[in-house]
């Protein structure tokens, strides 16, 4: 039997840790100062998926981050999970998916790969446009929303989740695969791995980008809730009110 190994590229996104982000209580505007960055959860699923394929079949995983100042620590996190080589491209400024796709695919074109793996959406904007854009720029088939990946000799089989059913798809290498959250539970790397990862080298590059957008932001505020917000901390008082509201709704 021929022993197959795979060259896998995993695209890693860093986002502001939105769970820690607050909005201004009077203006409703986001307060982004001092909010740390984190590796987007779906990127962790993508890294885990890539590393599992490598562990099972052999091969190499290259991580790419289009990011900024804190991206080296994100790459070290990726190393600790099992990424072999890391490239950080600095110059990420806005949230323009066309630009991100262009920078990433230009880099990908210089590398050898069988599979490009990335998250299907990200928790900050949910645009979900990157998989399609990159597949278009690279001219390779997109197997999207995967919950399982089975590499074979010439093709890869992927189970794809759709809204009301799942499908099993097949495509010939090279392919781009976007993963859905259910694909795996990303591992928590052992302390030893984290220490080792800290010492590894990261390739730092720089992208020269200009963002020509016609989009101007008119406002960016927390939505105002019109709810009554009658909240009881005293159960004795709350139970009768809730009982009345429920009984009214049952009529």
């Amino acid at each position: 039997m021929i022993y197959l190994t795979y060259n896998i590229i995993v695209l890693i996104k860093q986002i502001l840790d939105i769970d820690q982000m607050k909005t201004n209580s009077t203006t409703g505007e986001p307060i982004t100062d001092g909010v740390p960055m984190r590796v987007e959860n779906l990127s962790k699923n993508a890294i885990e998926a890539a590393v599992r394929i490598k562990e099972k079949y052999g091969g190499k995983v290259t991580g790419i981050i289009f990011g900024g100042e804190q991206s080296s620590s994100a790459m070290k996190e990726a190393y600790a999970i099992g990424v072999d080589d890391g490239i950080v491209i600095k110059g990420y400024s806005g949230r323009n998916p066309a630009l991100t796709a262009k920078v990433l695919s230009e880099k990908i074109k210089t590398l050898q790969y069988d599979m490009v793996i990335l998250g299907n959406q990200s928790a900050d904007t949910y645009t979900g446009l990157l998989p399609g854009k990159i597949s278009s720029l690279l001219g390779i088939p997109l197997l999207g929303n995967a919950i399982s990946i089975d590499p074979e000799e010439k093709e890869v089989k992927v189970t794809r989740v759709l809204e009301d059913h799942n499908v099993v798809l097949k495509g010939s290498y090279p392919v781009i695969i976007s993963v859905s959250q259910e694909i795996n539970e990303p591992r928590l790397p052992a302390v030893l791995q984290i220490i080792k990862a800290g010492k590894r080298e990261i390739k730092i590059e720089k992208a020269a980008v200009t963002d020509a957008s016609s989009i101007s932001v008119i406002s960016d505020r927390a939505p105002k809730s019109e709810r009554k917000k009658e909240i009881y901390e005293d159960q004795e008082k709350g139970i009768p009110v809730l009982t009345r509201v429920i009984k009214e709704a049952m009529l």
Binding site: A101, T125, Y126, G128, L129, K133, N145
Partner: peptide, 24 residues
């Protein structure tokens, strides 16, 4: 429309047309 397929198609079409897109 934003479905799994729709978002992928939107990515491809916006790239092919070279046009800016606003998502969701």
């Amino acid at each position: 429309m934003s479905t799994a397929l729709g978002r992928e198609v939107a990515g491809i079409i916006s790239d092919r047309l070279g046009k800016e897109i606003i998502a969701e």
